[in-house]
Amino acid sequence: MNIGIIQPYSNGFLDVVPEGEDSDYWQIAAIHINGQAYCPTPRLYRSEKAALAKAAQIYDWLADHSHQISNGIYNCSELQLILWQQSKLS
């Protein structure tokens, strides 16, 4: 059973999970940067490597543009996805 991958990246980490048990498809669960978690529009990737590559691309974009996210949501036309900033649990 594969429960997912959490990979350190820059000053944060990337979190990807398989679509389901024994699935070859993966999705990005969250991108963690500067103590915040961001979740992209759900999308399936053909491999763990493809999901991690897209998550890294999103992380790099966030590193330069996180100030553009207001009210916890941002429609990123450049990456063709929506990002939700997850609230921290108290």
Rank of each mutant, 00 (worst) to 15 (best):
V17F: 03
I31S: 01
Y45A: 05
I3M: 10
I28K: 02
Y45P: 01
A53Y: 04
F13D: 08
I73R: 09
N71T: 09
N75G: 03
I33D: 05
G4T: 10
S70F: 04
E78F: 00
N2R: 09
G20R: 15
L81Q: 05
Q85E: 15
L62R: 03
I82S: 09
L14N: 03
L89F: 07
I33P: 00
A53G: 03
E48H: 04
G20H: 13
C39G: 01
D24Q: 13
D24S: 13
I28M: 03
K88F: 00
I33G: 00
L89C: 07
L62T: 05
A51L: 08
Q7S: 14
S66W: 02
R46I: 14
G20S: 15
Q27R: 09
Q85M: 10
L81R: 00
A29Q: 12
A50E: 15
P40W: 01
Q36A: 12
E48K: 11
V16P: 02
C76W: 01
S77M: 05
I3R: 11
W84N: 06
Q36M: 09
I6M: 11
G12P: 03
I31N: 02
I31Q: 01
S47L: 08
S66A: 12
V16S: 06
V17W: 02
G72F: 05
N75F: 05
L14E: 06
N34M: 10
I82A: 06
A55V: 05
A51P: 02
H32V: 15
Q7H: 09
H67Y: 10
W84Q: 06
W84Y: 12
L44F: 08
F13L: 06
S23K: 11
Y38L: 08
E19A: 14
N34K: 14
M1V: 13
G12F: 03
N34A: 15
D15G: 00
L44C: 04
I31D: 02
W61I: 00
I73P: 00
N71F: 09
Y25D: 11
L52R: 05
K88N: 14
L79Y: 02
R43C: 10
A63F: 05
N34H: 14
I28C: 02
N34D: 15
I5R: 08
S47K: 11
L79G: 03
P18Q: 11
W84P: 00
L14W: 02
W61C: 01
Y38M: 03
D22R: 14
R46L: 13
Q36K: 13
I69F: 08
K49W: 00
Y25H: 12
Q36L: 06
I3A: 09
G20V: 00
L62D: 08
K88S: 14
Q27T: 09
H65L: 07
Y45W: 13
K54W: 01
L62Q: 05
S77C: 01
H32T: 14
V17D: 04
Q27N: 08
